[in-house]
């Protein structure tokens, strides 16, 4: 029987638990570190892989300024509405009334505001070139997410723009749900708030205008 699925060459057999690439920045600082790399070695392909506590809370300043400078790297932002690695605390993306370990009675938006929509927020900036929100809840979405990520890397390789792909995801462990229930909850609760789609695609627009 032939193999139908192969691991990409870029992945090694090493055990990794969180840093799949080559460098580790502190919580939230990955875009600054990626800036440092890209500024001295523009030829390297650089991406940051960040969660919602990382990017939307402690690293808010770094992501906004990197995006606004149009740093030509790619950010993959995994939004699952909760802090995962530290064990399920409230994130800036936690939904109204969603229970977490630090919002045991549910997120009170009167007290801490509404969840932050990062893709929308970054799209308000003029400089960043490509911003899309995707999800991996079902195969039909995964195909789209894959396309978006590929496009982001192509733009980087063509030295075009800063790219940001938000990936709405689940966290069954910290949500205290089965994987199936998580998917349902995410579709019912997250997707109506975090609307999927392309928020900005400047290279595509420019290509259109050129024609």
């Amino acid at each position: 029987m032939g193999k139908t699925f192969l691991k990409p060459n870029s992945l090694s057999d090493n055990h990794t638990h969180y840093c799949p690439g080559c460098k580790e920045a502190a919580h939230g600082r990955a875009p600054a570190m990626a800036t440092g790399i890209k500024r001295v070695r523009p030829d390297l392909n650089v991406f940051t892989y960040q969660g919602d506590g990382d990017l939307a809370s402690i690293g808010m300043s770094e992501i906004i300024h990197s995006a606004n400078r149009g740093e030509k790297f790619t950010t993959i932002f995994v939004n699952n509405a909760v802090y995962g690695m530290t064990g399920g605390q409230m994130a800036p993306t936690t939904m109204p009334n969603q229970k977490t370990t630090t919002s045991p009675f549910g997120r009170d938006v009167k007290d801490v505001g509404m969840p932050i929509k990062m893709a929308n927020l970054l799209a308000a900036l003029q400089t960043p070139g490509y911003i899309e929100r995707t999800t991996v809840l079902k195969p039909k979405y995964i195909v789209k997410a894959k396309k978006a990520i590929k496009k982001a890397f192509i733009y980087q390789m063509e030295k075009k723009c800063f790219s940001f792909v938000e990936v709405v995801s689940t966290c069954p462990t910290n949500w205290g749900m089965t994987p199936q229930d998580s998917i349902k909850w995410a579709e019912d609760t997250l997707l109506p708030y975090y609307e999927l789609g392309v928020f900005k695609d400047t290279p595509k627009m420019e290509e259109k205008n050129a024609k």
Partner: peptide, 13 residues
């Protein structure tokens, strides 16, 4: 804060 990590990234290269 950001400058610190820009240095880190550049130096790590």
């Amino acid at each position: 804060v950001a400058v610190g990590y820009m240095l880190f990234g550049a130096s790590a290269c």
